Simulated scan of single mutants.
Amino acid sequence: MSDDERALGGYSSEAGRNAHEADAPTLIPVPSLLRSLLSDHLDPGYAAARTRPQRGRLADWSWQLCAGLVVAAVFAAAVAQAQSVAPAAVETQHVLADGVRSAEQSTRDATGRRDALATEVEDERRTRLEGDAEGRGLLAGLDTAEFAAGATGVRGPGLAVVVTEPDTARDLSDVSKQRVEGSRQIILDRDLQLAVNSLWAAGAEAVSVGGVRIGPNVTIRQAGGGMLVDNQPIVSPYEILAVGPPKGMHDVFEHSPGLARLRLLETSYGVGVTVTESDGLTLPASTVRDVIFAKGPPQ
């Protein structure tokens, strides 16, 4: 096949002409699609690439090799930098963790000393006031006020309400199953607040949540994914203890809005809710804070 024929896709330049008739019209050759498919096995672009000079291909390979070496060098430098920085990061984490543990220990020591001094003050006060009738009257008034403020520990019968977050294996990826968008947490601070208020309404004389006594200026709040009671973190399962008449409180609490919400969470999200009566609950004393009153100018 000549070069002219190859340029026409494998067809002769005389194709379509009548060579036996004089003055016959000149016809434009029409290539055959079937003949093109059978004769040309490579696209023209591939054919041109096949005939490219060897030197051009070597140049292309050289550029690709250089690019690969540059990428490898960048990754090697990144790995070396990460390895050099990792020990410093680990050391910083250890220093911070040691600082946190030291601060926690200092807090525990200070709390223990405060409690010991408070006990000494209480003993000295009772020793001085129990000597006469007027002092005993003052002590009775102080005991009543301290109990109302949650400043004294309490032990007695009552109700134990335990609320547990659902199992993490439960599928909550669907937005419709999330109480807070983008969070897997189901039990919120307002749920515990409503349960505590319902226990007060049911006749509780003292209440604690997660081992923290509920009293004046004590709040139940949420910070991110953590639950705070009096600024102390508590975790699931959340234990709510209420000292009071067990049977009477149980009957009222069963029909309260607090338990109704917990039962709804139990049905909808798999939250664990248990309510049991107990004869020996122990509630700690609450932290007593100074209450400051503001008084406006006289009218």
Rank of each mutant, 00 (worst) to 15 (best):
D3E: 05
A15H: 15
H20K: 11
A22Y: 07
P25C: 08
T26V: 02
I28F: 07
V30H: 15
S32R: 11
S36C: 04
L37D: 11
H41N: 05
T51C: 07
R55G: 09
R55E: 14
G56D: 03
R57V: 10
L58I: 09
L69G: 02
A76Y: 13
A80Q: 10
V85Y: 12
V85F: 08
T107S: 10
R108A: 01
D109V: 06
V121T: 07
R125D: 01
G131H: 14
G135F: 03
G137D: 04
A149W: 12
G158A: 07
L159Y: 04
V162D: 00
A169F: 08
L172A: 07
V175R: 08
K177F: 01
V180F: 15
R190M: 02
R190F: 02
A195N: 10
V196A: 01
V196Y: 02
V196Q: 03
N197V: 13
A202Q: 12
V207G: 02
V212E: 01
G215I: 00
N217H: 14
A223M: 06
G224M: 01
M227R: 12
D230S: 02
N231G: 03
E239Y: 03
D251M: 09
D251H: 09
F253I: 06
E254Y: 15
H255Y: 15
G258R: 03
R261Y: 00
R261H: 06
T267F: 11
S268E: 14
V275L: 10
G280D: 15
L281S: 06
T282H: 04
L283S: 10
P284D: 04
S286W: 06
D290T: 14
